Simulated scan of single mutants.
Amino acid sequence: MKGRNMTRWRDPAKDPRQEPKSNLITAEGAARLRGILDHLSRTKRPALSAKVGEAAAQGDRSENADYTYNKKELNRVIARIVYLTKRLDELRVVDRLPADTQKVFFGAFVSLEDAEGETINLRIVGHDEMKPEQRWISVDAPLARALLGKTLDDEVTVMAPGGEATYLITSIRYANASKPA
């Protein structure tokens, strides 16, 4: 039992992190990830490399806080660059409207009404572009899975932490994209 990265054991069959994630992403999400990768590669990494070089030139590295901090930060940035490069290669960009825009599919903006009459607006996006504060949910989420393929005025029942929740679909729309696939 060595190492700092030791975590508690989780049953792989019950661990939600082991569930396969879809490799779908919207065109806007892919552009955002490419922008982050570009910024890290062209701006942040060279700046950190220069800081590490300057700190290393000061002499003894064992007690040099600048060197230690910047080296850790540089390694973190390099790891993020490697992750984004691999992730962008495996993602499939969905940049077209579905053939039937009257149904809920990937990329849809959906308005739901719950049992109390409250309206919930959400968007179904890829795992890499979720924004909980804007209610952009992953296509892999239970609510999104329940919504896929449904039409206007359909009722959807989902198991929620507080019990079953039933929603009525009140509107479906899609962002501007190219013609249907």
Rank of each mutant, 00 (worst) to 15 (best):
N64C: 00
V93Q: 06
L122R: 03
L84D: 01
V139M: 08
R61V: 07
R45W: 08
N75L: 12
Q102C: 10
V82K: 05
R123I: 02
K103P: 04
A65P: 05
V77A: 06
A50L: 13
A56W: 05
E54R: 12
R96A: 13
Y83E: 13
V104A: 06
K86G: 09
D114H: 04
R135L: 11
L84N: 01
A79W: 03
E133K: 12
S111Q: 13
P46F: 09
Q102R: 14
N75Y: 08
T68D: 14
R45Q: 14
R135V: 09
A79V: 00
G107H: 07
D95R: 12
E63M: 11
D89K: 13
L74T: 05
K71V: 04
Q58C: 00
M130R: 15
A65V: 11
P132V: 01
V94E: 15
T68L: 15
I78A: 05
N70A: 07
Y69I: 11
K71L: 14
L40Y: 07
Q58P: 01
P132Y: 00
D114E: 02
K44S: 12
D114F: 04
S41H: 10
V93W: 07
D95M: 06
V52R: 06
N70V: 05
P98K: 02
D128I: 02
V82C: 02
L91M: 09
R135Y: 06
E116C: 05
L40D: 13
L40R: 04
E116H: 08
P46D: 01
Q102S: 15
I78F: 00
S49A: 12
R135G: 02
P46R: 05
I120Y: 08
T119Q: 13
L88P: 02
A47Y: 10
I81C: 02
L40A: 08
S138K: 04
R145S: 11
P132A: 04
A57G: 11
S138W: 01
D60K: 05
S62M: 07
L122F: 01
F105K: 10
R76Y: 09
E133I: 10
G59I: 00
L84P: 01
L112P: 03
A99P: 08
V52E: 05
Y83P: 03
T119V: 10
G59A: 00
L97A: 10
L143P: 02
N64A: 00
K103V: 10
A57V: 04
A57T: 03
E73V: 04
E133S: 14
L91I: 08
D114P: 00
E118F: 12
R87N: 03
D140W: 03
T119I: 13
T85D: 01
T43Y: 12
V77P: 02
R123S: 07
A115M: 12
K51V: 07
R145E: 15
E63C: 04
E129T: 08
I81D: 00
A108T: 00
S62K: 08
R76T: 11
D89G: 10
S62H: 09
V93L: 06
F106G: 04
N64D: 01
V94T: 09
I81A: 03
T101L: 09
E118A: 13
N121S: 13
Q134G: 06
W136N: 15
R45A: 12
M130I: 15
D100L: 07
E129F: 00
R61G: 04
S111R: 11
V52S: 06
V77H: 01
R61M: 08
F105D: 13
W136I: 10
R80L: 05
S111K: 11
Y67Q: 00
E54W: 10
T119Y: 07
R145P: 08
